[in-house]
Amino acid sequence: MIDDLTIEDVIETFSLFDDWEDKYRYVIELGRMLPPFPEGARTDENKVRGCTSQVWILPHLSDENPPRFYFDGDSDAHIVKGLVAITMLIYSGKTPKEAIEIDARAILDQIGLSEHLTPSRSNGLFSMVTRIREMATEANEQA
C-alpha cells in the first residue's frame, strides 16, 4: 500500500530509471497502490478542475496538535492517478505550515515529472496542488 512509502523512497526509486517507459510504469503502479476512493465523496466539491481527465481529492486534517494533512485521491486516468499518489505523498503527514513551505515543483522536477505541473497540462494536478496550498493557508491562519 501507498502508506508504506515515503516521498523520499519514491524519489530514490525514480532515480534508478533511465527511460521514460519505466518511469511511467512506476507512476501507474503508484496510482494502483492508492486505497479505493470513498464513493460517497465523489462529489463536485471534491472534484478538481481538469479538462481531459477527472481528479478527486478529499483532504483530512488530523486531531493532532498541530494538525496534519492526510488525503484520499483518485483519477479516471492511470498516469494522472499516479501523479495524484505522488502529490499525496509529498503533502501527507505535513502540518499546514510545512505544506505551505513545500516546493512541489522542485520535487517533481527531481523526479523528472515537473512538466505535468504546468497550468496548461490541464490534468488537474496543478489545480490539486493549488487547492492543497489554499487549504493549508486557511488552516494555518486559523491555527
Binding site: 481531459t52 481527465s53 486516468a77 492511470h78 498516469i79 494522472v80 490534468n123
Partner: peptide, 13 residues
C-alpha cells in the same frame, strides 16, 4: 481500458 489522457501522454513520449 486506456484513458485518452494516458494515451496522449504516452504518445507524446
Amino acid at each position: 481500458g486506456i484513458h485518452p489522457h494516458d494515451l496522449g501522454t504516452i504518445l507524446d513520449q
